[in-house]
């Protein structure tokens, strides 16, 4: 079996961030199992963390390394973290043929054959994985969550063409934009269901401010992608939403009703991105 080197980037939360409650303990156990599941079969992981977090990280297994993240995430989003673009650049710098991003609470139950199949396909184009949602860690089967992409892999050369400035781990929209960015540049991108990409369900830490700021990053890029969006056959509703979001800017403009309009338009535009991406959808038997 030919091993394709894969370098994933993430931002592992420090153990203390998970809290001391029973739910925190449950998530800490899950986080540790995620961490242990990532490396293997030529896959390695780089975690970017703010300097202050580095001493608080759990013990890292072989194949997972942590490095200091650049500043600015806390100032932009109100909590410390790492920039997506910087993390992906770190993965590219490893020289691996395939690079990618993984959310830190994703467990990869992938055997060597599955890893090889995924890596081989990711050499040809972007793969964005929906997660299988689990109620408890031992659950074998679950429903895939279609409105998010928690593991994204791509050929190294593609990563250099993406414009991910301003997006951060743990903030909504980066996963939608990375797909839309690729699709509107004519780069191959697929959505994948693989039962080995698993997530333990938890309450959503919903923060509307971060949601709007993430949407604003997309809105600012839409005027330059409108023609490409039309060429993809996105349809009049998607194009009208793109125009609306581009005009309003996404992030809390002054004016009666605009916040509600942006929330509605952003939600619907997100669904349009999911639909566009699912035109090229695949399943991979697993693990």
């Amino acid at each position: 079996m030919t091993v394709t080197e894969v370098a994933l980037a993430t931002s592992i939360p420090p153990s203390l961030a998970l809290g001391a409650s029973p739910e925190g303990a449950r998530r800490a156990v899950w986080a540790a199992s995620c961490l242990a599941s990532w490396p293997g079969g030529g896959w390695r992981v780089l975690s970017l963390n703010p300097e202050a977090e580095l001493p608080l990280l759990p013990a890292l297994p072989a194949g997972v390394v942590a490095a200091p993240a650049g500043p600015g995430v806390a100032e932009a989003y109100g909590r410390p973290g790492a920039w997506i673009a910087e993390a992906l650049a770190g993965a590219v710098a490893t020289g691996a043929e395939v690079v990618g991003l993984v959310n830190a609470d994703i467990r990869l139950d992938l055997d060597p054959a599955a890893r090889a199949a995924i890596a081989a396909r990711a050499r040809e184009g972007m793969l964005a994985f929906n997660r299988m949602e689990l109620a408890h860690p031992a659950q074998q089967d679950g429903a895939f969550y279609r409105y998010g992409y928690d593991l994204v892999l791509m050929p190294r050369a593609m990563a250099a063409r993406l414009d991910l400035a301003g997006f951060a781990f743990g903030v909504p929209w980066w996963d939608y934009w990375i797909l839309l960015d690729a699709l509107t540049q004519g780069l191959p991108a697929s959505v994948v269901w693989c039962p080995g990409v698993r997530h333990l369900a938890h309450a959503q830490a919903w923060r509307m401010g971060a949601w709007r700021r993430g949407l604003a990053l997309i809105a600012a890029r839409l005027p330059g992608r409108r023609d490409a969006l039309a060429a993809l056959g996105a349809g009049p509703v998607a194009l009208a939403l793109a125009d609306l979001l581009a005009a309003l800017g996404g992030d809390a403009p002054e004016g009666i009703g605009l916040a509600e309009i942006i929330e509605r338009a952003g939600t619907r535009f997100g669904l349009e991105i999911v639909r566009l991406a699912e035109r090229d959808a695949w399943s991979l038997d697993g693990p």
Binding site: D111, P112, A113, W282, D285
Partner: peptide
């Protein structure tokens, strides 16, 4: 281990 299979998927949302 056997090679896993890729299958094209059609989604009706």
């Amino acid at each position: 281990t056997t090679a896993p299979a890729w299958r094209r998927r059609v989604v009706q949302d």
